Amino acid sequence: MEQGTVKWFNAEKGSGFIERENGDDVFVHFSAIQGDGFKSLDEGQAVTFDVEEGQRGPQAANVQKA
């Protein structure tokens, strides 16, 4: 798993970007967020995640709040 920080997340659209510790920013969709309840992330929040190849390039998967 990688570690990173939420660069921004739009709760209305359900997507945003995570700033990786090593590498380019990666797209995140709300469906990749693990946990119960409303799936959203806050700017500056620390997260851990896997990276998968999506239709438009790398994207975060199995996102967990650190």
Rank of each mutant, 00 (worst) to 15 (best):
residue 1 M to H: 13
residue 1 M to P: 12
residue 1 M to E: 09
residue 1 M to R: 15
residue 1 M to V: 12
residue 1 M to D: 07
residue 1 M to W: 09
residue 2 E to R: 09
residue 2 E to D: 07
residue 2 E to M: 13
residue 2 E to A: 10
residue 3 Q to M: 13
residue 3 Q to G: 07
residue 3 Q to C: 15
residue 4 G to F: 00
residue 4 G to I: 00
residue 4 G to T: 00
residue 4 G to D: 01
residue 4 G to C: 06
residue 5 T to Y: 13
residue 5 T to S: 07
residue 5 T to C: 15
residue 5 T to F: 13
residue 5 T to L: 10
residue 5 T to V: 13
residue 6 V to Q: 01
residue 6 V to R: 00
residue 6 V to D: 06
residue 7 K to C: 07
residue 7 K to N: 04
residue 7 K to A: 04
residue 7 K to D: 06
residue 8 W to C: 13
residue 8 W to N: 06
residue 8 W to P: 00
residue 9 F to M: 02
residue 9 F to E: 06
residue 9 F to T: 03
residue 9 F to Y: 09
residue 9 F to K: 03
residue 10 N to P: 06
residue 10 N to L: 02
residue 11 A to S: 11
residue 11 A to K: 15
residue 11 A to E: 09
residue 11 A to I: 11
residue 11 A to G: 09
residue 12 E to R: 13
residue 12 E to K: 14
residue 12 E to L: 13
residue 12 E to W: 12
residue 12 E to S: 13
residue 13 K to N: 10
residue 13 K to Y: 09
residue 13 K to F: 09
residue 13 K to I: 13
residue 13 K to A: 10
residue 13 K to P: 03
residue 13 K to S: 11
residue 14 G to A: 02
residue 14 G to Q: 03
residue 14 G to K: 01
residue 14 G to I: 03
residue 14 G to W: 00
residue 14 G to L: 04
residue 15 S to W: 15
residue 16 G to M: 02
residue 16 G to Y: 01
residue 16 G to E: 03
residue 17 F to T: 04
residue 17 F to I: 10
residue 17 F to A: 03
residue 18 I to E: 03
residue 18 I to N: 01
residue 18 I to W: 01
residue 18 I to A: 00
residue 18 I to D: 00
residue 19 E to K: 15
residue 19 E to S: 14
residue 19 E to I: 14
residue 19 E to F: 11
residue 19 E to Y: 12
residue 20 R to A: 06
residue 20 R to Q: 06
residue 21 E to K: 13
residue 21 E to Q: 12
residue 21 E to P: 12
residue 21 E to S: 12
residue 22 N to M: 09
residue 22 N to F: 11
residue 22 N to A: 09
residue 23 G to A: 09
residue 23 G to H: 06
residue 23 G to P: 02
residue 23 G to K: 09
residue 23 G to W: 03
residue 23 G to M: 08
residue 24 D to Y: 10
residue 24 D to L: 12
residue 24 D to F: 10
residue 24 D to M: 12
residue 25 D to R: 09
residue 25 D to P: 08
residue 25 D to T: 11
residue 25 D to Q: 12
residue 25 D to C: 15
residue 26 V to W: 03
residue 26 V to P: 02
residue 26 V to T: 01
residue 27 F to D: 05
residue 27 F to W: 09
residue 27 F to Q: 01
residue 28 V to M: 05
residue 28 V to A: 01
residue 28 V to S: 00
residue 29 H to T: 00
residue 29 H to N: 04
residue 29 H to W: 04
residue 29 H to E: 05
residue 29 H to S: 04
residue 30 F to G: 07
residue 30 F to R: 09
residue 30 F to P: 06
residue 30 F to T: 06
residue 30 F to M: 08
residue 31 S to C: 09
residue 32 A to H: 06
residue 32 A to P: 05
residue 32 A to I: 01
residue 32 A to M: 05
residue 32 A to R: 02
residue 33 I to T: 04
residue 33 I to K: 00
residue 33 I to W: 00
residue 33 I to A: 04
residue 34 Q to K: 11
residue 34 Q to L: 14
residue 34 Q to C: 13
residue 34 Q to N: 11
residue 34 Q to S: 11
residue 34 Q to V: 14
residue 35 G to C: 13
residue 35 G to P: 02
residue 35 G to M: 12
residue 35 G to R: 00
residue 35 G to Q: 09
residue 35 G to L: 07
residue 36 D to N: 11
residue 36 D to L: 12
residue 36 D to V: 12
residue 36 D to K: 12
residue 36 D to R: 10
residue 36 D to C: 14
residue 36 D to P: 12
residue 37 G to V: 05
residue 37 G to W: 05
residue 37 G to Q: 06
residue 38 F to S: 06
residue 38 F to E: 07
residue 38 F to T: 06
residue 38 F to K: 07
residue 38 F to H: 08
residue 39 K to Q: 09
residue 39 K to P: 07
residue 39 K to N: 05
residue 39 K to V: 08
residue 39 K to C: 08
residue 40 S to K: 09
residue 40 S to Y: 13
residue 40 S to E: 07
residue 40 S to Q: 08
residue 40 S to G: 08
residue 41 L to S: 02
residue 41 L to E: 03
residue 41 L to C: 04
residue 41 L to D: 03
residue 41 L to P: 00
residue 41 L to F: 04
residue 42 D to T: 15
residue 42 D to S: 15
residue 42 D to P: 07
residue 42 D to K: 15
residue 42 D to N: 13
residue 43 E to I: 15
residue 43 E to Y: 14
residue 43 E to V: 15
residue 43 E to Q: 15
residue 44 G to Y: 05
residue 44 G to V: 01
residue 45 Q to N: 06
residue 45 Q to G: 05
residue 45 Q to L: 08
residue 46 A to S: 11
residue 46 A to H: 14
residue 46 A to R: 14
residue 46 A to W: 14
residue 46 A to T: 11
residue 46 A to K: 14
residue 46 A to D: 08
residue 47 V to Q: 00
residue 47 V to C: 04
residue 47 V to K: 01
residue 47 V to S: 02
residue 48 T to H: 09
residue 48 T to I: 12
residue 48 T to S: 10
residue 48 T to W: 14
residue 48 T to Y: 13
residue 48 T to R: 10
residue 49 F to I: 01
residue 49 F to A: 02
residue 49 F to V: 03
residue 49 F to H: 02
residue 49 F to L: 04
residue 49 F to N: 01
residue 49 F to M: 04
residue 50 D to V: 14
residue 50 D to K: 11
residue 50 D to S: 13
residue 50 D to G: 07
residue 51 V to T: 06
residue 51 V to G: 00
residue 52 E to V: 15
residue 52 E to A: 11
residue 52 E to W: 12
residue 52 E to C: 14
residue 52 E to Q: 12
residue 52 E to K: 11
residue 53 E to Y: 14
residue 53 E to P: 10
residue 53 E to D: 11
residue 53 E to K: 09
residue 53 E to S: 10
residue 53 E to G: 07
residue 53 E to L: 14
residue 53 E to Q: 13
residue 53 E to I: 14
residue 54 G to Y: 06
residue 54 G to I: 04
residue 54 G to A: 07
residue 54 G to W: 03
residue 54 G to V: 05
residue 54 G to P: 02
residue 54 G to F: 06
residue 55 Q to S: 12
residue 55 Q to C: 15
residue 55 Q to R: 15
residue 55 Q to A: 13
residue 55 Q to P: 15
residue 56 R to P: 07
residue 56 R to T: 08
residue 56 R to V: 08
residue 56 R to A: 09
residue 56 R to Q: 10
residue 56 R to W: 15
residue 57 G to M: 05
residue 57 G to E: 03
residue 57 G to V: 06
residue 57 G to A: 04
residue 57 G to K: 04
residue 57 G to Q: 02
residue 57 G to H: 05
residue 58 P to S: 07
residue 58 P to A: 09
residue 58 P to F: 09
residue 58 P to R: 10
residue 58 P to N: 07
residue 58 P to D: 05
residue 59 Q to D: 01
residue 59 Q to M: 09
residue 59 Q to P: 02
residue 59 Q to S: 07
residue 59 Q to C: 07
residue 59 Q to A: 07
residue 59 Q to V: 11
residue 59 Q to I: 12
residue 59 Q to H: 09
residue 60 A to N: 01
residue 60 A to I: 01
residue 60 A to F: 02
residue 60 A to K: 00
residue 61 A to G: 08
residue 61 A to P: 01
residue 61 A to R: 13
residue 61 A to V: 14
residue 61 A to M: 11
residue 61 A to D: 02
residue 62 N to W: 00
residue 62 N to F: 03
residue 62 N to E: 02
residue 62 N to Q: 05
residue 63 V to F: 00
residue 63 V to C: 03
residue 63 V to T: 00
residue 63 V to N: 00
residue 63 V to K: 00
residue 64 Q to L: 08
residue 64 Q to N: 11
residue 64 Q to F: 07
residue 64 Q to E: 08
residue 64 Q to Y: 08
residue 64 Q to I: 11
residue 64 Q to M: 10
residue 64 Q to T: 11
residue 65 K to W: 08
residue 65 K to L: 13
residue 65 K to Y: 09
residue 65 K to H: 08
residue 65 K to I: 13
residue 65 K to G: 08
residue 66 A to E: 09
residue 66 A to Y: 10
residue 66 A to I: 15
